[in-house]
Amino acid sequence: MMKKIIGIFVICFLGFIPISKIYAFVYGDSVIKITYKYSFTEPGRPEYNDEEFLIIDGNKSFFFIGEGKKGKDGKINARVSQMKDWENHNLYFMGPMYPEYSLDSYWSDSLPAMKWTILNQFLTINNNYCQKAVTTFRGRDYTVFFAVNIPIQDGPWKFCGLPGLIVMGSDSKGIFKFEMTNFEKVPNEFNLGIGKVNGDYNRYKTLFKKWHLRRLEKDKARKEADPNCLGCGEGSNVRYVFYENLLD
């Protein structure tokens, strides 16, 4: 440690480089990586589980599902589902509508997107002192717990805007649940970004509704054309479940 400090001062002295830049070089190349366990449950069905990650890099945070893939440059690439840009107060979310809007299509949303009511109820979750908060957001009622001892106003998906990191939450029907399983500072080995931003949430919602209805009509037409079709005939129960009420 002592050697490092002496080294930094020697470099500063020799190269007339401001100490702040050295600090950023030595210590600023790390990010906060938060792992969440996500579960999706509906009555009478087996529970579905997945891992989701929130990477906080300065004024931006990136949320994605799954570990991502290591590229040739050694950096981890992942399909970012939500990016929060705290400097410009914008949230961007992935919203492809194939084939018109490719997988790299993003849309903007307000940041923070939710208005919270903070309650006087506390819970210790994984050694974090947490407080309860509730919100109603686009058709669902959510209850979350945020860590008072982690002053990061962020969380998974579009959740954010509380005085601490959102570590646990669920909707009132218990369909969507998430819980933080790991919090660590790691070297920035991520190559994360978003694609073209096509418009705001209202525009996305209008277009999505039309696109989704067209998708349902196509499914119906396939079923009518071949009632014994294995993937679309009787017994095939394709059903879409959205976080947000996109269809009203």
Binding site: F64, I65, F93, G231, G235, N237, V238
Partner: peptide, 10 residues
């Protein structure tokens, strides 16, 4: 990848 789900049961 955007967080929504589809039930694909048969």
């Amino acid at each position: 990848p955007n967080g929504n789900n589809v039930d694909v049961s048969c």
